[in-house]
Each structure stands twice: as C-alpha cells, then as structure tokens.
Design a binder for these strands. Structure first.
Lengths: 243, 243
DNA sequence: TGTGCGATACTGGTATGGTAGTATGTGAGG
DNA sequence: CCTCACATACTACCATACCAGTATCGCACA
C-alpha cells in the first residue's frame, strides 16, 4: 500500500511521510474512518515512529485525521457540514481574489491561464480525469498567485483538502468536465475583460458546483460520511477568552 | 520568563507548551527574530525536548516560527506583506460571515453581542486595553459562531495570529478604543436591522483600521519587521502539480 | 447460558541518546 | 592586519525505550 521511504536526504523524512499520507487520504486510498497506527505506518514505510508521529500532527492540523490520545488515530469521515463550511470559506476567499484579478491581473499571467485552459481541453478529450484535476488546481492557483495572494491561496489549499475527497469520490461517475471547463473560461473572460463583477459571478457559479453532487454521494456512501454533525473535537486550538 | 509546566495531567504537555509559546509570541514577549532552542525551552519549562518539538511544529504550521533544519528555530519577524495578506483573507471571510449574519442571525445571539458591547465600553472606561482585546475577539467570534461558521472562525483565528502582534505592538500608544467600539456598534446595528449590505460595509471599514497603524509601526520598529518581503520559506506544503 | 472481572495487547505521549549538518570563534599563515 | 582552515559548540532530526492509559478477549463464576 505505502511505498517505502528511501533515504533521499535533503528533504526531512517527516515531510515526505506527511505528503505520502496526505495524498493517500485525499485520493481516498485510505477510507474515512480507517485507523492509522503510528507503529504500523512506520514499519510499512521503513522509518521510525517519530517522523510518522510528526506527520500525524500536521495531518490533524489540516483536519484530515483525528488523534485520540491513548486510543488511536483515524482518518476523519467526510462531514457534510465540514465540506459545506470549507466551501463557504473557499468561496469567500476566491471571490475576493478573483475580484482583485479582474482589476489588476498582469497580461502575462492571463496568457498562462489561456494555455492552461487549452491543456484542460486536451485532458478532457483524452479522458484523463486525474490530469484534469491537476490542471484545475493549477488554474485556480495561477489566478491567486498572479495577483500575489500567496497566503490566500494557502488558505484555499487547506479548504480544498476537505473538498478534494468528495471530488475523488465522484470521479468514477460521469463528471461533467466540459461544463467545468466552460466555467473556467467564463472566469478567465471576466478577468481579461477587466470586469471584476463578471469574474466574481462566474467564479461563484463555478464554486457552487460541488454542492450538487454532495447529497447524492452522501446517500450512496453513507459509511464514508459522518453520521451526525455534532462533536467537533478536531484540532481547534481554543483561544481561552471570556464571554 | 516561562513558567514551569506542572504535571496537571488530563491535558497533553505538548499542547500546553504550544499555548504558552503562542501566547508569548503574539503578545510580543518573544521578540520577532528571537531564536528558540528546543533544549533551552525544554529545560526552562521542566519538560523533555519532545513535547517542545511538537509545539514548534504546530507553531510553524501557524506561521509564527520558522524551523530551519540543523540551524535553529526562530520567531518570525513581522512582515508587512504577511500582515496585509492575512488582513485580505480575514476581510474576505469576515465579510461573507457578516453578510450571513445580517440575513439570519438569531435574536438570542444579538442580545449577547449587545451585552459584549456594554462590556467593551466598561473596559474602555476603566482603561483595560488587554481586557478590551479579549472582548473584541469574543465579539467577532460570537458573530461567526452565531451563524454556525465554525470553520470560518477557525480560519480567521489563524489569520488573526499574524495581526495580533501588530495590535499588541500598538497597544502602548494611544489606541482609539472608542472609535473601535463605535465601529462594532455599527456592525451590530447592521445585523440587527437585517441589512447585510450595511453590516458588510461597517465590517469592511472596521477591518481596514489595522492598516492605518502599520506603516507608522514599521518605521518605528524596523528591526521587528522583515526587511525584504522575498523568500517565503515558511510552512507551505507544496502540492506538486504541473503548470 | 449469561455476566463480570482481569490478563494482555494494543494505542499515543514522553524521555533520552546518538547523528549529521551548520555557525562560530580561534589560531596559523600570508 | 587580513584571510582562510579547522576545532568546537551548538542546532534540529531521527531512532529507541519506557510509560500510562484504553480496548478486547477469554475465563472464572453465578
């Protein structure tokens, strides 16, 4: 399941473990609810428990696993509320970003985005959904970084982690890729036309897309979803302020 | 400087260390640029290096320290760009939240917010700026949680970490607390009037406030600020996608 | 047959030792 | 006096060992 970590040096082992596990989780190779043992993962990857432990900490910070002391570490189940909340934040941030892009996106980046769009079409023609997902992410990232919203993109990336699992879950089904590409084009048109309102509207429409498949998926895969939306005992470090 | 960690049990030591250090950093007890040694912090707190190390990891995830392998761990200097970026995200999220609040905030929470506002005035009268900061945070949090935007608040909390250091830095100077309270009231009025546009406008005005003091502070405390905005080598886990 | 208790095999949390890499300071040579 | 090499004192990283809880399973007993 997990490939052994070679002493590639240069990059810390803990980071590699983190990347490996993160990838496995968002691509649904590790089912929600699955227990992850420090010991087990460590032996499978051929490293000690320590780096694995640190990777677990980062994953829990990202909200992908929950660490229950003395009990175990588990891949968090997909929570409809969590996905909706993440989408809310993502929409808020990306709308602000795309407005900025509509106002001041440099021409050079617009060219890159056009090229990316062509690549998306190619990936769609050749029926390579995974490749399309990569290009999709790159498209959104290029918009954010194009107007120097690095931190904003970092936040979006985190919210995406939640939503990506849903996307991978809906991959086998017919994904209306053409539809998504058309939406991307509308966004880019708005940016190129220097029309923040149009760009924002197009982006808003685009980001609503994921909500359509959510109820269907929750019905089809009930055991992958968190049954009750209560009990948020995740990572949330509480700033202990008073009322 | 740091109080020893008593074996209070129940709560993991690493979490307590994290809270302690985080507090020390955002309140500027630990100056930006200051080196933090695992060994040193561990002995000062009377714990082993391991929990300290884990706390460092969480702090680096929050962007409050940078871990440079084999070199050292340092409190990150305040970066004007970083603050501006964080503010951008915070504005995007909180505007969306306050719009939602303007549409569907339950009356009960509005009552709580009124009470909080009174407490803010009391704190202002009694010249207790730190208490005011607590109430300020509680005010914003209550708005977010009032419309069940838990995750959104979590994101805001993270962005706040960056901005709070600036606030603490500007505390000794005359802080126009009355002005802030008036802005809070305007926001709440907009919510109570069920007028999302008004609430959003008030919130936007409010969140711009921090930008006013930033250049002044950067001029007065140049050594606390990152000289050049380049070299973002923070926590950013890269999703290695192609162009 | 059903129930409760206890041994056992886990879990994550903490402590500690060793290693590789980096900065720094010092002394020799120009 | 300046420059460069090398010893030394750090650093974070990784591995290992031990600890304190938790769940589970089986056996004794009602």
């Amino acid at each position: 399941m997990l490939s052994r970590i070679e002493p590639n040096s240069a990059e810390p082992v803990s980071r590699r473990v983190f990347r490996e596990l993160r990838q496995a989780i968002v691509t649904m190779q590790f089912s929600p609810g699955r227990p992850l043992s420090e010991q087990e993962v460590a032996t499978q990857l051929g490293v000690s428990r320590q780096p694995v432990r640190e990777a677990f900490i980062k994953l829990s910070e990202s909200g992908l696993v929950t660490i229950r002391p003395q009990r175990g570490t588990f891949v968090v189940k997909i929570s409809a509320k969590q996905v909706i909340d993440a989408r809310f934040v993502r929409e808020a941030v990306e709308l602000a970003v795309v407005r900025k892009a509509g106002a001041e996106m440099p021409a050079r980046v617009i060219g890159e985005l056009r090229a990316n769009l062509d690549a998306q079409r190619a990936a769609a023609d050749e029926r390579e959904p995974e490749r399309f997902l990569e290009l999709d992410e790159a498209f959104h990232r290029a918009i954010a970084l194009g107007v120097e919203c690095d931190y904003a993109w970092r936040v979006v990336e985190e919210t995406k982690a939640q939503m990506d699992r849903v996307r991978y879950l809906s991959l086998p089904q017919a994904t209306p890729v053409d539809r998504l590409i058309a939406q991307h084009e509308a966004i880019l048109d708005g940016i190129e036309a220097r029309d923040p309102d149009r760009a924002e509207a197009a982006m808003r429409l685009h980001l609503r897309e994921i909500l359509t498949s959510l109820p269907e998926l929750e019905r089809r895969f009930p055991d992958l979803f968190d049954s009750e939306p209560a009990a948020r005992s995740t990572a949330g470090q509480t700033a202990d302020t008073v009322a």
